[in-house]
Write a protein that binds this DNA or RNA. Structure first.
Length: 217
DNA sequence: AGCACGATTAACT
DNA sequence: GTTAATCGTGCTC
């Protein structure tokens, strides 16, 4: 394990171009403290959204009550509700005053698996956090966390250094679900994912019975 | 006040 | 591949 692994990621990490942050978030660990217990997963899929000119970004309408947190400083949570039932978790990035965020789209479950299984009952582990709304269910993330500081010492939701993912493992594609968004925003390749993470990453991270990854309920 | 639609998911045919 | 679920948001009237 690299020496950096395990420590909290500082705010400066997020004060960068949204695409750079989206790329370097791969392999880092998202941690949720629930009743004093750690639920955590490795970030394996992200998307960048930046600026009012990005017609795929919620900020295309300018500053509104919903999007105001995206105009603030980096390292804060932008959590929004959509389709009448789903929460989405984003990290605000770039400089204070410029609206940008990175959507976390998938996690490899690592810690607090008993609790995650309860949140995602009847689903196989591979489906616990392989979508932006699913990972919010798995980690119990909802609107109460909107605007929370992910870099605060007492944060209940934050990021820790994980394992670097080499470029050879990273794929970029257009962002998902922007069906009625005009070009070039519809097709710009601002989605970042770890290739074959469901098959390869557990092995590469040396996840074995010494962690709770394979533990049965 | 009314309306169309959404950075999705699960359950269908 | 198609579709229901379900409601906040931001736009138009």
């Amino acid at each position: 394990m690299p020496l950096t692994s395990g420590g909290r990621i500082p705010r400066e990490f997020f004060e960068d171009h949204a695409c750079v942050v989206a790329r370097k978030l791969l392999g880092q660990r998202l941690v949720r403290i629930l009743d004093g217990v750690r639920l955590a997963g490795v970030v394996v899929e992200t998307e960048a959204y930046r600026g009012e000119e990005d017609l795929g970004c919620h900020c295309r309408h300018g500053r509104t009550p919903r999007t105001s947190v995206m105009y603030g400083p980096a390292g804060f949570a932008y959590v929004y509700f959509t389709y009448g039932m789903h929460w989405m978790f984003n990290i605000v990035v770039e400089r204070d005053g410029f609206p940008a965020a990175v959507l976390i789209r998938a996690l490899l479950p690592m810690e607090g698996l008993d609790r995650m299984a309860e949140h995602r009952r009847e689903k196989p582990m591979a489906r616990w956090a392989d979508g932006p709304a699913k990972l919010c269910q798995a980690l119990s993330i909802d609107g109460k966390l909107n605007g929370s500081d992910l870099c605060a010492p007492k944060a209940q939701l934050f990021l820790e250094w994980g394992q670097p993912i080499p470029d050879s493992r990273v794929t970029t594609t257009p962002r998902v679900g922007l069906n009625s968004v005009p070009e070039p925003w519809k097709s710009i390749p601002w989605r970042y994912l770890v290739s074959d993470w469901q098959a390869d990453l557990p092995r590469e991270l040396n996840i074995t019975s010494e962690t709770d990854y394979w533990r049965k309920r």
